[in-house]
Computed example of a mutant assay.
Amino acid sequence: MPRGEKLYLWEEDDWPALRYDLPALAVQLAQTSHAQGLLLGRIADVGMALREQASLAALTEDVVKTSEIEGEHLDVASVRSSLARHLGVEIGAVAPVDRHVEGVVEMVLDATTHCRAPLTAKRLFGWHAALFPTGFSGMTPIKVGGWRDDATGPMQVVSGPDHRRKVHYEAPPASRLRGEMSNFLRWANADTPEPVLIKAGLAHLWFVTLHPFDDGNGRIARAVGDLFLARADGGRQRFYSHSAQIQRERKDYYDVLERTQKGSMDVTQWLGWFLANLHRAVVSAQTTLDAVLAKARFWQRWGDTPMNARQVKLLNRLLDGFEGKLTSSKWAAIAKCSPDTALRDINELVALGVLRKGEGAGRSTGYGLGSGEVGNAGSEASLRDGARQ
């Protein structure tokens, strides 16, 4: 980085006095708060078991997508099983869970379900240790559960091959981190005048600007933001995933962060993007809730119909959003049964009207849920506890 030239926010004389134009953000702030209220109001009209399922769906997406932003792909079934176990939610058959999945789950749950607890260095170190239980990031050993020491050089965000690297950002030197993080944590735990959604956006930006760890800074920055969003929601359960929306707009996310960190202390543009992205996340959660309610309506209709465990498992896979075409061969592979047994399972459900035969012939025939059985089967308020698992 050229010396004598201020490139980044943290090099400004008045850092960390971040500024923003609140009137310019008023409309977005109101729209986002209104969307949150609509979602929470709708959630309040359903039974406890359905709220648990909606929260489980949102948290599963959050854990998977916050890792996906960093290029890591977690097994969705393992994430869901881990979350269900931690939350005490019954989901029937569980998938094996590895320690890495457990670490991300533990961080996300601690940030959201204990959102009122102070944010401390010890807590952040715990999150970091949970993300990197082996002390390695990939094949590279890293300092775990402590601020980075820059032993291998300055902390930089780069892209491209080694011979043509582009430096997008360079974080403050490690020698400044103890003081910088003390300032951040003092502000994070103080009763400050910002609206809570604004504070969530500022916390996300401030933390990722400091980049205090050798790795995992993006995931922990999003968890810090989620902590303040959970405070804004006023409850222990989460029903939308901000990380999922960020992942959908990943390029814009990195672009606006880079522009902001190379800009002035006025971070209104970042907060505008953050609020707009959050608004889209909350609106998108209505679709997730629709799916949870549709699943409940399905089992409300078919719950008393005799079915074997294979049929229940595959129907739940369809209800959760099966990718591609469900064929008898895929049924056999997922249910771990013979092709003849799979076809017999399917034909029984087709005869009942639970499944319908789609396009194709022979083993390439596709099957989907029968028409109409997940349609309106009463108001949301009538959908009380439980869905067949």
Rank of each mutant, 00 (worst) to 15 (best):
A117Y: 03
V354T: 04
Q245E: 12
G378Q: 07
E170K: 07
E61Q: 12
D304Q: 12
G370P: 05
H211G: 07
E348L: 14
Q36T: 13
Y253S: 00
P173N: 06
G135Y: 05
G321S: 07
G303W: 08
K330C: 10
L7A: 15
S159K: 10
G303V: 12
S81F: 03
K143I: 11
P212T: 01
G368M: 03
G41K: 01
W127R: 01
G370F: 05
A54Q: 11
S137M: 11
R297N: 13
A174M: 08
E68F: 02
V196R: 13
L7R: 15
H242R: 03
L205C: 09
G368P: 08
L289H: 07
K65A: 00
A294K: 15
G4V: 10
V208S: 03
V46R: 08
R250I: 01
A332P: 00
G362E: 09
D110C: 04
K330E: 09
R297D: 02
I346H: 00
V101E: 01
D110H: 01
H211Y: 08
A26C: 05
G235S: 10
N277R: 13
Q245Y: 02
F207N: 02
G146V: 10
G146P: 05
L289G: 04
E70R: 02
M1I: 06
K357Y: 04
R317L: 15
Q31H: 08
V312E: 09
K199M: 06
G303Q: 09
G370T: 11
L278A: 08
T32M: 12
S284Q: 14
A377H: 11
L87C: 13
R388E: 11
F228G: 07
